[in-house]
Design a protein around this nucleic acid. Structure first.
Length: 578
RNA sequence: CGGGGCGUAGCUCAGUAUGGUAGAGUACUUGGUUUGGGACCAAGGUGCCGGAGGUUCGAGCCCUCUCACCCCGACCA
């Protein structure tokens, strides 16, 4: 391609609606152009890089035995009613009616369509397993699109679905996909982490997210600085505090007899800790929320150790609520709770109160806890012998510095991550309602066991730029650069430079190298800045040195210019792009 | 969906307190000079001032409604 003929609208100006570096740079460098909220046009450069990502994804998946399909983008709403997700997805599903007034949706993900595709064809265990995927535009009418390609409404996703005769085989495929995904993200040159994740609305049991490490990421991760444990903060675990070697002060035996203690106006954990001269670890903190269910709501009390915070996602999952909101003071009073003195014992008998206790409080003693009575706390409480049956669950939000639950050596640190892949062990969540069954080895009809695997393909382009840029622009990895080589003729009025550049250009084309020739009638500075902005991995500068048979090779990655004999440049380039 | 902001030239933005002929930079066209880090000189074109209604002799500016876009939050397979 000749730069003089290419449609590459670059700009010095920062687009006024962009915040994220990747969004700014991709726009300024002429890869993408915003159309409307969450919608983007891909210009020639963007299209080329996107296609390269797509190709890498496809190559690795095909290599692992997956098969590409292409399902219709517009899908009948009936399917979504069958699976029950039309309500669950809500307004994110873009719905419309055709000329016959039939209701359709634009596919935001394709579990329903894929199950519908196979349910009548896969009838026997002999035909399983199958792993089908597509790389396709999806549409989700996001409440708040943002960050350019990172959270668009229209985006390209690879979505894969596997079908198995049993749980074990599904797990085998799950781990195969995990390894395949690692290969893909490694080929894309990303610094990423595989983390344990919440399965969210798609459901299923185990799930792993693939997170590109970047400060601009929307998710918080807790990762171990010693082993490879990592988890989304929503699900991250730790060694129980007492087992952590950095909390020696907790490993003391504390004598405390059971008693009811007057604690006038002592309400907060901090005040209690001071009042009793004791670590907040011995105090049970009550976090009260209003739990919202589909048709009802309850008051939920979550108990954790004084120094711990409740992780909302874990709390929601522990009681299967849709969401948690803060209760009003009246709502607390209505169920007989006294803020500041809520405790484990003597809770008001009210069916609208749910109590969940963090696992780290299991069998704990002695504990200080509110007496559910104004100005009183109990001390010396033992959770070894609770009067009624209690619900324990992991509720705490891990902190930086907590000890890793896996290696028990390293400590956890927070990182921000961009979710670029998510794999789920789905089970029969969709096969059952949609009637995707097969006859097993005993001739019995069974729902297929499914896995589902996603990669945010267009988001990857953003993630790559987030991780690979400097003040001057994008540093495009060789694997996805729209052109690997940029030949920059410093001054096209100089016929020696021009001729040399043209010759090198046609030589490289003959060798099938993806090359662009910057033959624009512009000054050197203008062209080199474009080259840096766009991020060509290598730019060959043909300029002043040519009289002495020298050209320069600029490596975008390390910004080093190397002088090279003009006779040798062709071979040098061939080496580089091998 | 709650809170905030913004909309004026292709792009970035001034002009709005106090209503009176529509602005700058950049980009673009032409000519010349220049040619290794976004050059310089000269000349030139550029607007339904987001839309609708209203107030006024007169509205980019004031009032009402509306639409779009962005930010924080909620939400996000």
């Amino acid at each position: 391609m000749r730069f003089s003929r290419a449609y590459i609208p670059t700009s010095k100006e920062i687009p006024n609606d962009a915040v994220l570096q990747s969004h700014i740079l991709l726009t300024r460098a002429g890869y993408i152009k915003g159309v409307a909220s969450g919608l983007y046009n891909f210009l020639p450069l963007g299209k080329k890089s996107l296609d390269k990502i797509r190709t890498i994804v496809k190559e690795e998946l095909d290599h692992s035995g997956c098969q590409e399909v292409d399902l219709s983008f517009v899908t009948p709403a009936e399917l979504w009613e069958e699976s029950g997700r039309i309500a669950k997805f809500g307004k994110e599903l873009l719905r419309f009616r055709d000329r016959k007034e039939a209701l359709f949706v634009l596919g935001p993900t394709h579990e329903e369509m894929m199950v519908a595709l196979v349910r009548h064809q896969l009838n026997s265990y002999k035909q399983l397993p199958q792993n089908l995927y597509q790389i396709k535009t999806k549409f989700r009418d996001e409440a708040r699109p943002r960050f350019g390609l990172m959270r668009g409404r229209e985006f390209v996703m690879k979505d894969g679905y596997s079908f198995h005769e049993n749980e074990n085989d599904m797990k085998r495929e799950f781990y195969l996909m995990q390894e395949t995904y690692k290969k893909i993200f490694n080929r894309l040159g990303l610094d990423f982490r595989v983390v344990e994740a919440d399965s969210g609305a798609i459901g299923g049991s185990g799930s792993r997210e693939f997170m590109v490490i970047a400060n601009s990421g929307e998710d918080t991760l807790a990762i171990c600085n010693s082993c490879d444990y990592g988890a989304n903060i929503e699900t991250a675990k730790r060694q129980p505090h007492r087992n952590q070697n950095n909390h020696d002060e907790l490993n003391v035996e504390v004598e405390m007899d059971f008693a009811k203690f007057k604690t006038p106006n002592i309400k907060t954990i901090e005040e209690l800790s001071k009042f009793f001269h004791i670590s907040d670890w011995f105090i049970a903190k009550a976090v009260v929320k209003k739990a919202i269910y589909e048709n009802s709501s309850k008051i939920a009390i979550f108990f954790v150790r004084g120094g711990d915070e409740v992780e909302e996602k874990k709390a929601i999952n522990s009681i299967n609520a849709l969401e948690l909101i803060d209760p009003t003071p009246e709502e607390l009073l209505n169920v007989g709770l006294i803020a500041g003195f809520i405790g484990l014992l003597n809770l008001p008998k009210n069916p609208n109160i749910i109590k969940v206790i963090d696992l780290e409080l299991q069998n704990a003693k002695p504990i200080i806890t509110g007496a559910n009575e104004l100005d009183y706390h109990y001390i010396g409480v033992s959770l070894e012998e609770l009067p009624e049956k209690t619900h324990f669950a992991d509720l705490i939000r891990v902190k930086e510095g907590d000890i890793c639950p896996i290696c028990n050596k390293g400590s956890l640190i927070y990182k921000r991550g961009i979710e670029v892949g998510h794999i789920f062990q789905l089970g029969t969540k969709y096969s059952e309602p949609l009637g995707a069954t097969f006859l097993d080895r005993d001739g019995k009809s069974q729902p297929m066991v499914m896995g589902t695997y996603g990669i945010g393909v267009s988001r990857l382009l953003s993630a790559i730029v987030e991780q690979s840029h400097d003040q001057n622009g994008i540093i495009m990895p060789l694997a996805i650069a729209p052109y690997k080589i940029n030949i920059l003729i410093s001054n096209i009025k100089n016929s020696d430079e021009l001729n040399f550049g043209e010759k090198l250009y046609s030589d490289l084309i003959a060798k099938n190298i993806e090359v662009i020739l910057d033959d624009r009638n512009e000054r050197f500075g203008f062209k080199i800045r474009d080259a840096e902005l766009i991020g060509f991995p290598y730019t060959i500068i043909i300029g002043k040195g040519l009289i002495n048979s020298k050209v320069e090779l600029l490596n975008r990655k390390n910004n080093i210019k190397e002088e090279i004999n003009s006779e040798l440049i062709l071979n040098k380039v061939l080496e580089l792009v091998e």
